[in-house]
């Protein structure tokens, strides 16, 4: 009994010591975020800075290289293939994001109502976005086959073409084919995001507006759209960044061909750095994604700020 009573304060003191660490919000907080910070620091922040550094060096595989200033960038600006890749990226991202937005919005408006089979439709329409892009890219590679394309078969059956089409052999046709495949994959993302936005609009607003004599267009313009802007901005910015940074679809279907006509920053960087061994030059190509990233985030920030 005595011993027990004597030991109690000591246990309490030890508990208090451990407890005070647990109760110190700052110490506990930083301890708990430490694992996440370590992973992001070592494999995201550090490589990010290393990448920027590499773009200023003539580094090769198995050769650290030395600082060469803006040499890589000067070379790239004069490089026809790189200049084409810049144009391709603008075209690819510009056209694909607009198409994904328009089609995704249309799909969201279509399924934002009660109908039989709604659950099935909403589940099925997300599939292109769920499955591995590299695997669906293989299907598009097969759909665009120069000899046995099912697309050509259908176009022939309805009388639109009378010979086989070499989708990936012609520069503009190849660009259009890749944009179509990218749109296919991205429409569900826009649809589900915008659908979520549509569902946050209070139904009473529509009823009140209808009573005041507002037609469908007026209701859309003055109720739906203003409330949808924040979600639309987030979805569009996210998709723009991902489309500009696309790699796998292009690499699997065309490898940047024909004659470098479909290279984006990602595929060109891979070709120069991994296949060619010019790490510095490849890193410089990849760094060009940064301005796009910063511009997107800044635009989104301004748009969302204005809304508030």
């Amino acid at each position: 009994m005595d011993r027990l009573e004597a030991s109690l304060p000591r246990v309490a003191a030890r508990r208090a010591a451990a407890g005070s660490l647990l109760e110190n919000r700052d110490a506990l907080g930083w301890a708990m975020v430490a694992p996440a910070l370590f992973l992001l620091g070592a494999f995201l922040a550090y490589p990010f800075l290393l990448g920027v550094w590499l773009s200023f060096t003539d580094s090769r595989i198995a050769n650290p290289g030395r600082f060469v200033g803006l040499e890589n960038f000067r070379y790239l600006v004069g490089d026809g293939v790189f200049r084409l890749a810049v144009l391709n990226t603008l075209l690819y991202a510009g056209v694909a994001v607009v198409l994904k937005f328009v089609l995704g919005f249309a799909l969201a408006l279509l399924v934002d109502r009660e109908f039989r089979g709604k659950r099935f439709v909403r589940a099925a329409m997300l599939l292109p976005w769920i499955v591995p892009t590299s695997l669906s890219a293989l299907v598009f590679y097969w759909i665009y086959d120069s000899q046995f394309s099912v697309l050509t078969w259908v176009l022939r059956a309805v009388g639109l073409v009378d010979r086989s089409v070499n989708y990936l052999g012609d520069p503009n046709l190849a660009r259009a084919s890749l944009i179509a495949a990218n749109v296919w994959r991205g429409v569900p993302f826009f649809a589900i995001g915008l659908l979520a936005g549509l569902q946050t609009v209070p139904r009473e607003l529509y009823e009140a507006a209808a009573m005041d004599g507002a037609g469908p267009w007026a209701r859309f313009r003055w109720i739906t759209w203003p409330l949808l802007v924040p979600v639309a901005v987030v979805v569009t910015v996210f998709s723009t960044i991902m489309t500009v940074g696309d790699f796998q679809l292009i690499w699997i279907v065309t490898k940047g061909g024909p004659a470098n006509a479909t290279h984006l920053f990602g595929t060109l960087a891979y070709q120069r750095a991994v296949q060619g061994g010019f790490l510095g030059e490849g890193a410089a190509v990849a760094v060009f994604v940064l301005p796009v990233l910063v511009a997107c985030v800044a635009l989104a920030y301004r748009a969302l700020r204005r809304e508030d």
Partner: peptide, 9 residues
């Protein structure tokens, strides 16, 4: 931050 910026480093 898209992976295309990070894969080389």
């Amino acid at each position: 931050v898209p992976p295309v910026i990070l894969f080389i480093p």
